[in-house]
Structures are given as C-alpha cells and as structure tokens.
Amino acid sequence: MNRRSRTWWKTAIGLLLTGVMLFPVYWMLNVSFTRDQDMRKSPPGLFPVHGTLEGYRAVLDQQLPYLGTSLVVGLGTVALTVALAAPAGYALAKLRPRGGGILSFVLLAAQMIPGIIMAMGFYAIYLSLGMLQSVPGLIIADSTLAVPFAVLIFTAFMSGIPGELLQAAKTDGAGPLRTFRSIVLPMSRNAVVTVSLFAFLWSWSDFVFASTLVNGGAHEPITLGIYHYIGNNNQEWNAIMATAVVASLPAAVILVLAQRYVAAGVTAGAVKD
C-alpha cells in the first residue's frame, strides 16, 4: 500500500513536469483557436473560450501549396537518402571494403558541418547552374542532412545480419547485388523505417536550405510559408499558429506511430552499444 502510494506520487510529478515541458505546444494550440480581437487581451486567455477556426481557414486558403511542396520534397529526400545509403551501409557492414574506415570517418565528420556553410556552398553552385528555386535542388540539399546519418544507421543495423545467411546465399549462386536485394534489404526493414522517418522529418523541418535556395520561388516549403507569415502580418497570430500546428502534424504522427524508431535513432546517433 505504502509502495503504491509512493509510485502514485511520482506519476503526479511526472505529469506536472510533462505539463511544464509541453506548455509551449499547448500555447501554440490555444493561440491557433483564439479570435483576433482576443489576441491582445491582457492577461491572455488560458483557454480558447470563444474558439474560432479562422486561423485554420487561413491555412486552407493560403498554405496548401506550401504543404504540398514540403510533402514532395520530404518524400523525394526519403527516396534519395535510402537509395544512396542502404547499398553503402551493406558494403560497409558486410563486404569489408579497403578504406571503409576512412569513409565512415568522413561520414561522421560530414555530420559536423554547419548547415549554414553547406547552404552558402549550394547557393554558389546552384546560382551558376541555374538551379536556384528548383524543387530537385532543394531535395538534393535537404538529403545532405540525412545521408551520413542514414549510412551509419544502415551500417550498424546490417552488421547484425548473420554472416552465415549471406554465405548461404553465395553458395546458392547469388551475387552481391542479388544478396542485397533479396536478403539484406528485406531484413533491414526497421532500419529503412528509421532512416525514412528521420529523413522526412528533417527535410520537412528544414529552414536554412529553404530560405537560401528557394526563397521567392514558385515552390516554397511550409517552413517558408510560416516565415513569410511572421514577416508580413504580425497581427494574425491565430493563422501563424494554426499553420505551425499543421506543420507539426508529421512530428505528432511519427511520435504516435513510430516512437520506438525515434528513440532508436536518437541513441544510435550518439551511443554505440
């Protein structure tokens, strides 16, 4: 009895801490439902008593093209990242290439380069190639956020595939390509999911590349949609926050459906076990 009440107490503290931590998220929701005339009220209303959907109507009216661009860019980034990283992970994990250690090192170092530097380099290159304000250009730039991480995840995961399986495939006459396609890739489904989730989330959230490479173009992602909103009309915060809520949906979906992959990805990047 005593023990149980002690646990109950901890749950209460846990709920309180989570509430404090997630207060900004609640506030975003609250403001997104607040009417214009209540926006500057002092003190601000803690609950959207006279809730309105004006903000969300504004999203539907103005932000759908941005959301569409973000979706296309996100999916493109996922495809490019997996296509590049999965074969590389297989080679590094199982084929023992000479110089593989150096490549892993370069990949780790590549993750350390600040995005703003990459953005400037991409800007210079795209300017001379005439690739500024193009969706494929943004996809390539966004994929640099995920590719090194993806190779490391695939390598770590594929190292766990038993060597006897691959040996057996070889004995049956399967070449490396066939082994990769029919055995390694199907067995690495979890790694593919983890990599895809992160690649999508990072490209969906990207602001640096978007603001340097496609700013002012015909196809801008949702991060720029919000940014323009903040810059243009400082008054309609319900519309800004409603867009922010919609832009957060992928993160929410991922958290609900795939939380274990997320935690796995975070720790795999930092700690080796």
Partner: peptide, 17 residues
Amino acid sequence: ALFLVPWLLPLIVSAST
C-alpha cells in the same frame, strides 16, 4: 515519449511559438 515532442517539432514552429 511525450518529452520528445520539442525535439521533433520543426524549429520554425518552436521559434515562432
């Protein structure tokens, strides 16, 4: 798991909030 939310949100969302 809920504590992960701030980390998953796009930075522009957190920053504007």
